[in-house]
Design a protein around this nucleic acid. Structure first.
Lengths: 343, 343
DNA sequence: CTAGCTGTTCAAAGCGCTTTGAATTGACAC
DNA sequence: GTGTCAATTCAAAGCGCTTTGAACAGCTAG
């Protein structure tokens, strides 16, 4: 069923039928009604490629996932973020196009995306410091929004981010207030912006209290369960144990918890743990009372919001570039308590 | 940069340039070389919509995620599956189109997808029993592949599945061999096919040994950490404790583990635990020695394979419908041991 | 009665590509 | 010198839609 068949069926021109379907005012209401009913009944929906070709709009947003050959891990946050973004897209009638790209071919790929024209905009994931994609996409004139910020980029660009610095600063301060002095940081890979900012927050808090960070207590790596487990074991085995651990994800925190259990330590009493909680739907931080004290920010909400912001930009290009900083909540759970040497 | 500009730039017709780029034989090799170089240099890549319109192929595969209003959870497996599928797609030059659909609108949506023509095929996720989508898509003539099987569907269709029945049957037999007689099953939602099949495997194993399953030991629910925790606590509180627990996902198993810890029980000694392990990249089951004894099957590999199978179907429609049953490995870890009452 | 509207409909061009059918060229055989 | 053929190249139609500019009917104002 295409427009031609439909209009012949109705005894109308394609022009009129098209206008009736797209809500143009110069169509007689009776005609419009007739057209809409026929379209419904005959299960007509316009061919997206033809429509796109005629309008110059793809009605789709691209999400580019850089697949580094080194780090094969899929971000556990991906599913929930996608679900959030998907909600905004489907409400607006947009599709979501996901592509995996080897990180060496990234530039070529973005250029191709532009000239292939199968997306109207792009969400940039996991920005790195001085991320070249921002300049590239700006130069290409491709609307985009960055999920996370990239420092070291001079140009203005649209982004949505969590206040990672503040979140970890507050978490660290909270631990300091509880009397903890030896606080370990199990951070994500610090080539990634968000991890870098969290570290800054951690350092800020220490500095504000005139404390010098101990490099031996600061670790970085991919945020897996094993990573949390191993580093915690290593920290516990080393000379002076930390009394608190600040970690970058629920999954890592679960590894930390396992290591503590193995050592016969009780979380919250012997050692305090704070984690960043992305509020993943399949990994809730407890039911009523949170298991882990955490800085919480819903990544699903981030997906929903960032998609909406990008759609707004596309529909109103005159609007100035929008940015949005989400604050993480500090949620008190059962994994923190006063420093043991202070009790 | 479009084909017209490029061909004018080269002093050739659009026909020749198009053929040169698409590898047709009737083009002089010198000409082809010249064209390819110019295309590279000028960053030309053909407009996907126009190409699609002309060829009738979208070069994209749709993944439809049904968003039930009741179960808001995003399947934790989604990211890894997508990554696997994405590998096959990007190797073949296909895009992946992901759409969220409310489950009431599902039929309308599939029909629209067909007539919009923005995908060449569809992957059906999370089939339910007697899933109506299979008949619908067959009738629409839309190529599709089902990730998982749906029982109660008369028609033939292409699918890729894990042998869930066999996996849980083997796991149960393994526990029985270790002397366990009271084995609990923490299953996923049994409206979903895979959970139903796992239950069957569990029951088969008991039946083969002439045992009667105890309904009090069989639970079902969304596979969260909390679910594992709660049900385990409940099982331990009840009259006769199980000596082993068979659970449906790593995340649930982690909840089970937490409950055991809270009760001061040692996993593998006091209570044995076996889980299904999807081999998620962010949730590895230990490094060298697995933490959990598990039935393991990589969902990423499933994604890669199923995408490839669908592409094969699309490129060679004459081929008979393909199906593929993956066997899960039974991996022995530290979470199982002989039944305590037997030692 | 005519000019000028307004409301409604239409024919045709154009979006950027592929592909059909025809044209052109040079080489070769007769 | 002419006819045939293979190797290249080309002009134009068509994919299914939107949108421009024109047409037409029915009114009202002059």
């Amino acid at each position: 069923m295409n427009l031609k068949t439909l209009s012949e069926h109705l005894g109308l021109s394609q022009t009129t039928v098209s206008r009736a379907l797209n809500g143009y005012p110069e169509v007689n209401e009776k005609t419009r009604k007739r057209v809409l009913e026929a379209a419904q009944e005959l299960n007509y929906s316009p061919n997206a490629r033809a429509k796109g070709l005629a309008t110059g709009r793809a009605m789709a947003i691209g999400h580019v996932i850089a697949r580094s050959t080194k780090h094969e891990m899929v971000n556990p946050v991906f599913g929930d973020y996608t679900a959030g973004a998907g909600e905004s897209y489907s409400a607006a009638g947009y599709d979501m196009l996901i592509s995996l790209v080897d990180d060496e071919n990234e530039e070529r790929f973005y250029r191709a995306m532009k000239s292939k024209g199968n997306v109207d905009g792009i969400i940039v994931h996991g920005p790195r410091m001085e991320d070249p994609r921002i300049d590239l996409l700006s130069d290409l004139g491709m609307p985009f929004l960055c999920h996370g910020r990239a420092s070291g980029v001079a140009r203005d660009y649209a982004w949505l981010d969590v206040n990672n610095t503040r979140a970890f600063q507050r978490a660290t301060e909270f631990l300091l207030d509880l009397g903890h002095r030896r606080i370990a940081l199990l951070n994500g890979l610090e080539t990634l912006e968000f991890a870098h900012r969290r570290k800054q927050g951690f350092l800020n808090a220490l500095q504000d209290r005139g404390m010098t960070p101990d490099p031996a207590l600061m670790r970085t790596g991919e945020m897996t369960e094993i990573y949390g487990y191993r580093e915690t074991r290593a920290l516990l085995a080393a000379g002076t144990r930390p009394t608190a651990i600040l970690t970058a994800s629920m999954i890592t925190a679960m590894g930390v918890r396992r290591a503590l259990w193995d050592e016969g330590l009780t979380m919250g009493r012997d050692i305090s743990v704070i984690t960043f909680d992305d509020d993943l739907s399949y990994l809730k931080n407890g039911q009523d009372v949170p298991i882990f004290t955490a800085t919480r920010s819903s990544v699903r909400e981030a997906g929903r919001l960032s998609a909406q912001m990008l759609l707004d930009m596309i529909n109103d290009p005159e609007r100035t570039l929008r940015t949005h900083l989400m604050e993480a909540d500090l949620i008190i759970g059962q994994s923190t308590g006063p420093a043991p040497d202070r009790v």
